[in-house]
């Protein structure tokens, strides 16, 4: 799924558009978007046998595997976030501090994951894992190939998610770095005698707080929502668990859908809070 966040919303140019046309568009859109939601929610809390009941939501938590899969996904997300930031930030600062030739390279590697559909990516990964295991069977690297596929903490998923998160994290950080004058900040700090680690941690990072938070939450949203790669590589992450568990219990499956919608919503709210967007 493409992670996109709402932009600012000043009032646009009111050009044309009679009041009636606009109202019709709004009514049709409201019906299309709200009817399925209302039906789905009522379906989860009401049935003819029991009447009103929140049982379906209760069953989510008590279903086997809920905690394990949720914690797995959170752990994957945490490691992915740290890795993405640690890898991207130095490279992006370097671009501004004297390696402008690096910029097109970064732009390219942060655009490719948008072009490559996840399903083809997972085909490439599984074929690499299979061939790798065959080719390295006789060497010590074989253990590595096996280790990164550990069910409890699949490193291979982290690597895949780092790649998928690059475009969103890059754009968030790029916007943040654009807003501060990195070159001047660095020169001023160096001039005052700051060391490189000090500079990075005490000067640049605090000024990028909202961009870092944005990158982190976009990555979190991506990891908590990604199904295709995890499912096809056979791991029980939270989104995969949702599908596995919902099987025969209709109410439970729709309740899980509502839950994931609420989850996205909460993440986006946190994201916009964290990035400190001022309301007009």
């Amino acid at each position: 799924m493409v992670a996109v966040t709402p932009q600012s919303s000043a009032r646009a140019v009111a050009v044309g558009g009679s009041g009636w046309g606009r109202r019709a568009v709004l009514v049709v859109a409201a019906a299309y978007f709200l009817v399925p939601l209302v039906i789905a929610i009522s379906f989860t809390v009401y049935n003819e046998v029991q009447g009103f009941s929140l049982g379906a939501y209760g069953r989510i938590v008590t279903s086997p595997g809920f905690a394990t899969s949720f914690l797995t996904s959170l752990a994957l997300a945490a490691v992915t976030i740290v890795l993405v930031l640690v890898l991207l930030l130095p490279a992006m600062i370097a671009v501004r501090l004297g390696a402008p030739g690096l910029r097109p390279v970064l732009e390219t590697i942060t655009t490719l994951p948008l072009i490559v559909p996840p399903i083809t990516y997972v085909v490439g990964i599984s074929s690499a894992l299979r061939e790798g295991a065959d080719a390295l069977a006789a060497t010590p690297f074989w253990a590595t190939i096996i280790a990164i596929q550990d069910d409890r903490f699949p490193v291979v998923l982290v690597l895949a998610y780092v790649i998928l998160a690059l475009p969103f994290a890059y754009r968030s950080l790029d916007a943040g770095l654009r807003a501060i004058d990195v070159v001047t900040l660095v020169e001023a700090a160096r001039n005052l005698g700051a060391s490189w680690p000090h500079l990075l941690l005490r000067v640049i990072m605090p000024n990028l707080r909202s961009a870092l938070a944005g990158a982190a939450f976009l990555t979190l949203a991506l990891v908590l929502g990604e199904y295709t790669i995890a499912a096809l590589l056979g791991y029980q992450t939270f989104p995969v668990w949702i599908v596995t568990i919902s099987g025969n219990d209709g109410q439970l499956s729709v309740a899980l859908s509502i839950l994931s919608l609420v989850l996205i919503w909460l993440l986006l709210i946190t994201l916009s809070r964290a990035s400190g967007r001022k309301k007009p």
Binding site: V4, S9, A40, Y227, L256
Partner: peptide
């Protein structure tokens, strides 16, 4: 302004809503 804000936020949520959960909601409908 309330309409603008809420539609844009809702768009942010729904644009990221997909996969199997999306299928379930429409199957229920």
């Amino acid at each position: 302004a309330a309409l603008r804000e809420s539609v844009l936020s809702a768009s942010g949520v729904l644009a990221n809503f997909g996969g199997v959960p999306l299928a379930f909601i429409w199957i229920a409908t």
